[in-house]
Computed example of a mutant assay.
Amino acid sequence: MAHKFTIKKNKAGEYVARFVYNSETIFWTEGYSSKASARNAIASVLNNGPGAAIDETDE
């Protein structure tokens, strides 16, 4: 599979959910104190992401 979510601990000991595509991290969440909270963040992205608007600005 070319893409996946991973949950890893950061240097501060917090759990961070990352979206990885072709071995490259595309985005990551804030740090959470529990793995369950990181899983909830992934569930939120999966649930809310498909309908998200695209906001393009030229600055």
Score class of each variant (00 low, 15 high):
Ser33Trp: 00
Lys35Ile: 05
Thr6Ala: 02
His3Gln: 15
Ala17Leu: 03
Ala38Gln: 06
Val16Cys: 04
Ile26Lys: 14
Gly51Leu: 06
Thr29Asp: 02
Phe19Met: 06
Val16Pro: 02
Thr57Ser: 13
Ala2Trp: 05
Ile54Glu: 14
Lys35Arg: 15
Ser34Cys: 04
Glu30Met: 06
Leu46Arg: 12
Pro50Ile: 06
Asp55Leu: 09
Ile7Glu: 03
Gly13Phe: 01
Thr57His: 10
Glu59Leu: 12
Gly49Leu: 04
Ala43Ile: 00
Ala2Gln: 11
Ala52Asn: 14
Ile26Trp: 09
Gly13Glu: 01
Ala41Gln: 10
Ser34Asn: 05
Leu46Gln: 14
Gly13Asp: 05
Asp58Met: 13
Tyr15Phe: 15
Phe5Glu: 00
Val20Glu: 02
Ile42Tyr: 09
Glu24Phe: 08
Ile7Trp: 04
Lys35Phe: 06
Phe19Gly: 07
Phe5Ala: 03
Phe27Asp: 03
His3Asp: 15
His3Gly: 08
Ser33Glu: 10
Thr25Trp: 01
Ala2Asn: 12
Phe19Cys: 03
Ala36Leu: 05
Arg18His: 14
Asn10Tyr: 02
Ala53Ile: 07
Ala53Arg: 07
Val16Ile: 03
Ala43His: 05
Lys9Asn: 00
Lys35Cys: 06
Lys11Asn: 07
Leu46Cys: 10
Ile7His: 00
Ala41Phe: 08
Ala43Tyr: 02
Lys11Gly: 05
Ala36Trp: 01
Asn10Asp: 15
Val16His: 03
Phe27His: 00
Asn47Lys: 15
Asn47Ser: 14
Arg39Glu: 15
Ile7Val: 03
Ala52Thr: 13
Arg18Leu: 13
Ser33Tyr: 04
Ala41Met: 09
Ala12Arg: 07
Lys8Leu: 08
Glu56Val: 13
Ile42Pro: 09
Ala36Met: 02
Ser23Glu: 15
Ala52Arg: 14
Ala38Cys: 05
Asn40Phe: 05
Gly49Met: 04
Val45Ser: 08
Ile42Cys: 07
Tyr21Leu: 11
Glu59Asp: 15
Lys4Cys: 11
Gly51Tyr: 07
Met1Val: 10
Thr57Pro: 01
Arg39Val: 08
